[in-house]
Computed example of a mutant assay.
Amino acid sequence: MSSPLKAVCAALIAVLLTAPSAGADESTVDVNADPVRVMPLGDSITQGGSIGGYRLDLGTKLRAAGRNVDFVGSLSDGPSSMPDRNHEGHPGWTIAQIDANVVNWLRTYTPRTILLHIGTNDMYGSDPAGAPRRLSALVDKITSQAPSAEVFVSTIIPIRFADATVRNYNSAIVPLLRAKAAAGKRVHVVDMYPAVPISDLPDGIHPNAAGYSKMAAVWYAALSSVPGSIGDPQQPGDTCTATPRVASTWNGGFQAEVTVANPTAAAISGWTVRFTLPGGHTVTQIWGGVASGSVTVTNADYNGTIAPNGSATFGFIASGPGAASIGAATCSSS
């Protein structure tokens, strides 16, 4: 096929796949497809290196619990198999640097929930004693800009060579944060320090995979204790699950696969999966399903029925600028 003809076909497919299905109940689709926007916010401990930090296991826990959550932020990294890689974890940054940028991020991404772990780089800076005051001002700025957001602020994890300084910081910030909560602000204290032992910090600062997994468990418990912070769990009728993964990437696009599973003892006869793509991305090709909106996928004729404990898959190609990622996917069955 000639290049001009291929381009025309690709454009036609994009239009067909992104157009809403005729007769669809768009208001229902929009409500169900709207995930809770969660912003992981902090420094390199939030970014998590090539393994995705605590975000990897936290996302897995949320999806397993049927929570429709989308991590948001201007950065996107982690392993290519990680379904949702967006965040605001900036390696080397201090409280003041986060403070200088946070209003713009909040306006851009409008998170419903914020996970803040910050202060590590202040501990070996020029003024560690002033860090609690700086954190207090940062949290005030966040709650002023986003008063309806749930703001989870954690004590920082240990530093092998600065443990006393970390302990002093943590003991100072807890009463400051609790006072804000008592004043009616949506601030929640998360005690992260005891969760990660020094043995899980290979360089004395950053956790290994085991340490990040422990952080994820603490975040998940805190989120689960605050109604609405991660949405509602899947309803009893929504018996299927959807697990997306990025299979390959290239400049200007990526290929992904989604596994739709039926973990129940009864067969399902049809399924609908909803997820989000990075801004500017659209689905340009799909197999094993029928796409509409941004983005809703229903089963193809041949894979709608899934036996008990069975699964089906569909795949797609998305095109657009920036890093490849897939927001948290939800599944409903019929």
Rank of each mutant, 00 (worst) to 15 (best):
F71V: 00
E150F: 15
A33I: 05
S50R: 13
H117R: 10
L75N: 05
S333M: 02
D232Y: 07
A172N: 04
N68G: 09
G204Y: 06
I286R: 02
A96D: 09
N251G: 15
R107Q: 04
A210G: 13
I156V: 14
S248I: 11
V190N: 00
S269R: 11
S2G: 11
V31L: 08
G289C: 08
W93Q: 11
N170Y: 09
G310H: 07
D127N: 15
C240D: 01
G211A: 04
S199A: 15
A242H: 02
N32V: 02
G310D: 09
I98E: 04
A266P: 02
V258R: 05
H188K: 02
A209D: 13
I13Y: 13
Q234H: 11
D127E: 08
W93P: 01
I173W: 06
Q145L: 06
A33G: 09
N68D: 08
T18E: 14
R245M: 11
G228H: 03
M39Y: 08
A172G: 04
D70Q: 11
N104P: 03
A312V: 14
T298R: 10
P79A: 15
R274V: 01
N168K: 14
V72T: 11
T46G: 10
D191N: 15
S27C: 07
I51C: 14
D232M: 12
D122C: 04
Q234C: 11
Y220A: 08
A129L: 15
N68A: 12
Q145M: 13
R112T: 13
S224N: 07
Y124I: 13
P244H: 02
I118F: 04
G253H: 08
T298W: 02
T249M: 12
Y124C: 03
I198C: 00
W287M: 08
N299T: 05
S292M: 08
T18W: 15
F314M: 00
V72M: 03
K6E: 14
S136I: 12
P197T: 06
M1E: 15
P40N: 04
I306V: 10
A146M: 07
S248P: 01
V196F: 11
Q47D: 13
V196I: 15
S144P: 01
V151Q: 01
S248E: 10
F275T: 00
G322Y: 12
